[in-house]
């Protein structure tokens, strides 16, 4: 057995250690790699830029803490963009395993940065609802069919923003930040049946599938994983100086900072793949000889 082949049988905990260090060191000593913006992310940003002060974006939190590390920076950046651009937001959650927790935490975090915002006028938090497609059909026609109250128990009829748009179909744009299948439902149910322009911010795992919807025009844009989130952050930071202070906070977890780790860890894994294959070929050659 060659030395390379021996290397492939090392205790996997050494691999774990390398990945652990590859993650920890860039977190402690950030490098600050630049981020390049891709078209699917820019298309979402551009769509929100076309909206005016009376326009409404529906933001659906279709994920929970499981994938919060990927999805939270997306919803945070979208909220910062909407609030900086004076666009109103109706936020809701459809994902049962933590959607409400992610939604409430994100709304609280970002609205604290915009003290002039008025609840019920500039944004609304509808909370979580069971029901999946049934809820989506209802809220497309009339929010109050699915959400009689907001998350604080206030009837929707008492919230000025909810008088402006009856259902999601009357909003200008909807974004689902999703893990799993919920983003697909916004495309193949809400966009397909009501024509509402939608976009999805998805986990990296599900990004490849969403490209089919994007290319078919069923979605207006796509934020794929932490890389996509870092691109959106970059666009918001570049164009809205008021958000730079928040992004400069060392206590804030951002996608842009995460890209340092992503770079190091990807390179480690690619090196593993190369070593594994070199060992495989060395072993095969030795066997043939």
């Amino acid at each position: 057995m060659s030395n390379l082949a021996k290397l492939t049988s090392i205790d996997r905990r050494w691999i774990f250690l390398l990945i652990g260090l590859g993650t920890l060191i860039p977190v402690l000593l950030p490098i600050g790699f630049p981020v390049r913006v891709t078209a699917p992310v820019k298309q979402i940003y551009d769509k929100i830029e076309t909206l005016g002060p009376n326009d409404v974006v529906v933001l659906s939190y279709d994920y929970g803490p499981t994938t919060g590390a990927e999805n939270d920076p997306m919803t945070d950046a979208i909220l910062r963009h909407c609030f900086s651009h004076d666009v109103k937001v109706i936020a809701l959650a459809l994902y049962p395993l933590g959607g409400l927790t992610s939604l409430t935490a994100s709304i609280d975090r970002i609205t604290a940065e915009f003290p002039d915002l008025e609840y019920g006028v500039d944004y609304v938090n509808l909370g979580y609802k069971d029901g999946g497609q049934a809820t989506m059909k209802l809220l497309a026609e009339d929010f109050s069919g699915a959400f009689p109250n907001d998350t604080h128990g206030t009837p929707l009829s008492n919230l000025p923003l909810m008088q402006q748009v009856k259902g999601a179909r009357n909003a200008q744009f909807a974004i689902s930040v999703a893990t799993g299948i919920f983003g697909e439902w916004w495309a193949n149910l809400i966009n397909a049946q009501y024509g509402l322009p939608i976009a999805v911010g998805c986990t990296a795992v599900s990004a490849p599938k969403y490209y089919a919807y994007l290319e078919a025009g069923q979605m207006l844009g796509l934020i794929g994983g932490l890389k996509g989130a870092s691109e959106y952050e970059q666009l918001v930071k570049d164009n809205y100086p008021n958000t730079r202070e928040a992004y400069a906070n060392p206590m804030l977890q951002t996608a842009s900072k995460g890209m340092d780790v992503q770079t190091i860890d990807h390179l480690i894994i690619i090196a593993f793949i190369v070593i594994g294959n070199l060992a495989y070929f060395a072993d095969r050659r030795a066997k043939r000889a």
Partner: peptide
């Protein structure tokens, strides 16, 4: 492509936990 993206996704989740331990 899905595998590449899955690697990216799983690393992102780990970043979240390490960030939590270090920062928070």
């Amino acid at each position: 492509a899905a595998f590449g993206y899955t690697v990216m996704g799983r690393i992102s989740l780990l970043i979240g936990r390490i960030n939590f331990l270090v920062i928070q």
